[in-house]
Design a protein around this nucleic acid. Structure first.
Lengths: 184, 184
DNA sequence: TGGACAACCGGACACCTGTCCGCTAAAGTC
DNA sequence: GACTTTAGCGGACAGGTGTCCGGTTGTCCA
């Protein structure tokens, strides 16, 4: 649908840019926009037209990972009680994030990509499902939404590698506790 | 002590840079490093030698605010129970952050500025005091430290202005709940 | 007071980001 | 197949960041 509205050369360029970005990221761990453009054999303008911000490009590069994350939510809910499902899902986010920190940018942009429509994006939907289940079971506080959770998870991005192992899970536990309904 | 180990001209340059930064920030709301250097009448190299990163400069510019925040902690503890004190202190952080988002950068760098020495910086000390009081009273979970709190507070920086009013306090409540010890 | 040394200065430079605009060549029409 | 329209191309350019190094100038000691 989207592709068919693109001119043939534009579609090809877009694909080449994404591929170039992927290889630049996996080679250097960094993402330099002009390096991507050079490698893809396109001009800077072309790159920026297809992906206005660095995050848009990242979102495309990591779309596969994001989709996996999204798909995991209902599976976890089917197997576990809501709080455990949420905890496991957080663990999964942490796993992705340790290896490729950039996934977070993709997640964040993925969540808000159609902010205007009122929808909250695929990741937002996954989180909403987890929260809803918890609310229905009376174990998650009713006044949080997906955006809140995304924001809270965002604190992981500030961790540096050295402290990741000691702190990441721990922070997620604290966040999880904050999301749970306090009985009493 | 620090000043006396600096050469006279170096000290004066440093002061001029900070003053220039202050006026640039208050004039434009932004902080362009080369504009600061120009205004201070020093070269780029000089600026970067004194303040290796933008955050270092920000920390100096906002040191006054940071000190106020630090001073508030013991006062709040004297007047309120630990959890309330923590809540009020969070409110205070939010107040600063709304007006000048940059304060956060200052806070973060202020916390870690002498990471090597094992100390956690002035803000870190303030937070530690709040947490310790809560722990002693058995109302704050024992396994969190100042760094965790800073990280969690950091999520506020991702808020954009439009959603600040509806979300900031709310997020802080969730974080606070996560920090509290769950009875039962 | 003067000389030596190191700390310090300043701006040139290399790099990255993001924008703008004249030109090219696809896509649709007859 | 020629012609028009216009989406899309690409690279020049402006602006910002951070580094490097030859020259300068405080500071200390004799």
């Amino acid at each position: 649908m989207n592709a068919s509205r693109l001119r043939a050369d534009a579609a090809e360029n877009r694909a080449r840019i994404v591929e170039a970005a992927r290889s630049v990221v996996s080679a250097s761990g960094e993402l330099k926009l002009n390096a991507v453009a050079r490698r893809a054999g396109v001009g800077q303008g072309t790159l920026y037209r297809h992906f206005p911000t660095r995050e848009d490009l990242l979102a495309e590069v990591y779309r596969h990972d994001v989709e996996e994350l999204v798909a995991a939510a209902p599976l976890l809910l089917a197997e576990h009680d809501p709080v455990t499902a949420l905890a496991r899902w957080f663990d999964r986010v942490a796993d992705y994030a340790r290896v490729k920190r950039e996934v977070f940018a993709a997640v964040e942009v993925g969540v808000w990509q159609d902010l205007s429509t009122g929808s909250v994006g695929p990741i937002g939907d996954a989180i909403t499902a987890l929260l809803d289940a918890g609310r229905a079971a009376g174990v998650v506080r009713p006044d949080v939404d997906a955006r809140d959770v995304i924001l809270l998870l965002g604190c992981l991005t500030r961790l540096d590698d050295a402290e990741w192992d000691t702190r990441a899970r721990h922070l997620l536990h604290v966040v999880l506790d904050g999301l749970r309904l306090r009985e009493g």
